[in-house]
Computed example of a mutant assay.
Amino acid sequence: MKRLFKSFLVCIFLVSISINFNPPSLAEPTSPYIRYWLICGPFKDADLNTECIKNEANLSPVAGQKVDGKRWRRFLSCEDKLTFEKDEVFGPYGNSVAYAYCEIYTPTARKVKLYLGSEDGLKVWLNGKNIFTNNAVRSFCFDEDKIDVQLKSGWNRLLIKVSNITKEWCLSARFIRRGDADIKDLTYRPAMLYQLPVKKVEVSSVQPTEPKNKGMYDALNAIDKDRSTRWSSEFSDPQWIILDLGKPKSVKKILLNWEAYAKNYTIEFSNDKKNWTPVYSTDIGDGGQDVINFRRPARVRYIKVTGTKRGMRFGYSLWEVQAFSLEDK
C-alpha cells in the first residue's frame, strides 16, 4: 500500500510538471515599439547639427536608394530598441550619426504622444517639421523623452537622426494615446518580406530511384525556386529537412509547398544545430501550401521541419521550403 501511495504521489508530481512547463516560444506578441525601419549610415565625424544628407528634413527615402556612398536599407529589430552598434546594423562607430525612417498610417487625424529613448542624442522630424531635438550625452532609457504630436489622416513620415559619442548607440520609439494607452490601429512601413538565401540543405533521407533518374528527389530541389522539382523522402516516419542560412538571420515567415504532405509536423529553430527550440507544430496538415507567420521574428541560422506522421502512403515531398525576412541585407 505504501509503495502504491508513493507511486501515486510521483504521478501527481509529474503531471504537475507537465502542466506548468511552458516551452519557450519565438512567436511572441507584437510589441508597441516601432521595429520596422529604413536605416542609413553611419556618417562619421558628425553630430546632430551636421546635415549629412542634403535637405534631410524632407527626406522620403526608399530601400536601396544611395546617398553619399551610403544606402538606405530595410531593417527589422528583434528587440524593442534599434541598436546601431551591432555588427548587423552599423557597428560601433564613435562621433557619428545615423538616420532611421518609417511611415505611419492612421485612419483618422489624431493627437498622440511620441515616446523616445536614445543613446546618445536625437533629432526628430514628423512630416518634414523638426518637432524635437535633444543633443544629449546619456545612457539609454526607454521612453525618456515624451512629445505631444499631431498625426494627420493617412501616411505620416517619421525621421530620426541619432548621434553617438562612444560605445552604446541605440533608439526606441512608440506612439501612445493620451492617457498612456497603446494605439492598436496604426500601420507601419516598410514591411516588405525578402526571401532568405539558403547556403546548405540536409535531409534525413532521399527516395531511392533508378540510376537514370539520379537527382530527381534530391534535397537541393526543395530550395532551387523551381516548382517543377521536389525533394522526396523514404516512405517512413519520421523524416526531416534542415535549412542552413549560413549565419543567424531574422526569420519572419516560412512557406512550405507540399507535394506529399505531412499530417503532423513541427518546425524548430537553432543557432548551433544541437539545441533546438520548437516554434510551430500541427496535427491537421492537409497539404498544398502552408504559410507560417511569426508575430516576433527570430534571429536564427538553422530551420528544421520534421514530419512525424504522413498524410499519404508515400514519403514526405516538398516542392519548396522558403524562409522570409523583413531585412534586405
Rank of each mutant, 00 (worst) to 15 (best):
Gly69Ile: 03
Asn95Leu: 12
Phe90Trp: 11
Gly64Ser: 03
Phe43Trp: 08
Ser60Lys: 14
Phe90Lys: 02
Ser60Met: 09
Thr30Ala: 00
Trp37Lys: 00
Tyr93Pro: 09
Glu56Tyr: 02
Tyr101Asp: 03
Gly94Arg: 08
Gly94Tyr: 12
Phe13Pro: 08
Glu51Leu: 09
Phe43Arg: 08
Asn49Ile: 10
Arg71Ser: 08
Glu88Val: 05
Arg35Ala: 11
Gly91Phe: 01
Phe75Ser: 03
Asn20Arg: 13
Pro92Thr: 01
Ser16Gln: 06
Leu76Lys: 14
Lys66Cys: 07
Pro29Arg: 09
Phe75Tyr: 11
Ser60Cys: 05
Gly41Tyr: 15
Lys86Asp: 04
Ala27Ile: 12
Leu82Ser: 08
Phe84Ser: 02
Phe84Cys: 01
Leu48Ile: 05
Leu48Glu: 00
Gly64Met: 05
Glu56Arg: 03
Ala27Tyr: 15
Arg74Glu: 13
Phe43Cys: 00
Ala57Thr: 03
Ala98Phe: 11
Lys66Glu: 14
Cys78Arg: 13
Cys102Lys: 01
Tyr99Cys: 01
Val10Thr: 13
Gln65Ser: 10
Asp80Leu: 15
Phe8Gly: 00
Phe43Asn: 11
Phe84Lys: 01
Ile39Gly: 03
Ser25Trp: 09
Leu26Gly: 14
Ser25Phe: 13
Tyr36Val: 11
Trp72Lys: 00
Ala27Phe: 15
Ala57Asn: 06
Asp45His: 12
Gln65Lys: 10
Phe84Thr: 09
Thr50Asn: 09
Phe8His: 13
Thr83Ala: 15
Asn22Trp: 15
Arg35Gly: 04
Lys86Asn: 06
Phe13Cys: 06
Asn95Cys: 08
Ser25Gln: 07
Lys86Ala: 12
Asn58Ile: 01
Ile53Gln: 07
Asp68Val: 06
Leu48Gln: 02
Leu26Glu: 11
Tyr93Ile: 04
Cys11Asn: 12
Gly69Thr: 03
Ser25Gly: 13
Lys70Tyr: 04
Glu79Phe: 04
Ile12Thr: 06
Ser18Met: 14
Asp47Gln: 12
Tyr33Thr: 00
Tyr101Ser: 02
Pro24Met: 09
Thr83Lys: 15
Phe90Gln: 00
Gly91Tyr: 03
Leu38Phe: 05
Val89Glu: 05
Asn20Ser: 15
Ile12Glu: 13
Glu56Gln: 14
Tyr36Cys: 09
Asn95Val: 08
Ala57Leu: 09
Gly69Arg: 07
Asp80Gln: 08
Glu56Cys: 10
Lys70Ser: 02
Thr83Glu: 09
Glu79Gln: 11
Ala57Asp: 12
Phe8Met: 05
Lys70Trp: 07
Leu26Lys: 14
Pro42Leu: 10
Trp72Thr: 04
Pro32Tyr: 00
Tyr33Glu: 04
Asp87Phe: 07
Thr83Gln: 14
Ala27Leu: 12
Asn58Cys: 05
Pro32Met: 00
Leu48Ala: 01
Asn58Arg: 10
Val10Gln: 13
Ile53Lys: 10
Thr50Ala: 04
Phe13Met: 10
Ser7Gly: 14
Tyr99Gln: 02
Cys11Gly: 10
Gly41Val: 07
Asn20Trp: 14
Ser25Asp: 07
Gly69Phe: 05
